[in-house]
Write a protein that binds this DNA or RNA. Structure first.
Lengths: 156, 156
DNA sequence: GTAGGGCTTCCCATCATGGGAAGGTCAAGC
DNA sequence: GCTTGACCTTCCCATGATGGGAAGCCCTAC
């Protein structure tokens, strides 16, 4: 199997397969005399594993850990489970951040007439300055709850 | 106000302020004779606007659009509203993807005993190959519904 | 006059992914 | 046997938003 065929068979692009090899996530593939990479069923299986793990949002270093456990016949399922639970928690945190943003956005959009007039509570909110140019520094929309700095790295 | 003071006043790091200036998101700041950037209340106001928009997850090009509308006294609030609604929809899509991943992860974790034994449905699922090494290609967990390719770009 | 802290620019790194160029290889068709 | 087109190789660059750090200038306080 060439890299292109392996890519088609696994859903991992040829570019990514080379990258994963380069960073050591997957072992270096065999080569033909001409230097072409060669993939067998086992390699395809591994690549599919990686692909599925990526589909669950695992970062590459976590996938490396999963692969190591996969290959370790004497693993403890607790270790695998921990990775999965951690990942779920990580995603839930991201979801919470995003939901908080959505809540704010939808609240703002709701209060904007959305017509030809220029008045817009959305811009007013974005421009709100704790007593610098015009507005009072109090609650602009009550408990909209725009998270005061939801975290610099929103989507890692 | 120097760039450091503006950074402290707006929550945008000095690095980011320079970056926003470089890409044209905010106008170039004035300079002292020695070349130091100088910021006034108006600049601070703009930076705060940018910061708040970032907090709502807007990409930089969308923030540019918001800033343009903000400065345009004859804007239609409908245009602003559209940006906000689009943004909310974008975030919702991301949330849906993440939630689908979380569902799968938690379902898998639930079915893993998580003890010292090596058997692990999580690894079995990741390793599942449509009839290649061991398992039958049928539904492994019934309707877990791992999304068949939730999209290559999970979190833009 | 000097020390320390802040400013400048420039380069590099992240993370996972894609685009593209330059050149070698293979298989099919003539 | 030769051409053609599809595929492979490596190498470099770009993304988006952010941080880190170096080398060098500037300002203020002592």
């Amino acid at each position: 199997m060439t890299i292109g065929e392996a890519a088609a068979a696994t859903g991992v692009s040829a570019k990514m397969i080379r990258y994963y090899e380069e960073i050591g996530l997957v072992p270096a593939a065999g080569r033909t005399a001409a230097g072409y990479r060669v993939y067998g069923p086992h390699d395809v299986h591994t690549l599919r594993f990686v692909r599925r793990a990526r589909d669950l949002g695992f970062a590459v270093d976590r996938i490396a850990a999963l692969l190591a456990l996969w290959r370790d016949r004497s693993r403890a399922s607790a270790d695998v489970r921990r990775l999965a639970v951690d990942q779920a928690a990580l995603l839930r945190r991201r979801i919470d951040e995003l939901q908080s943003m959505v809540r704010t956005l939808e609240h703002l959009a709701e209060h904007c007439h959305g017509d030809a007039r220029p008045d817009c509570p959305i811009l007013d909110d974005l421009a709100a300055t704790a007593g610098e140019c015009h507005a009072a520094p109090d609650a602009r929309f009550g408990s909209t709850g725009r998270p005061h700095r939801p975290s610099p790295k929103e989507m890692p």
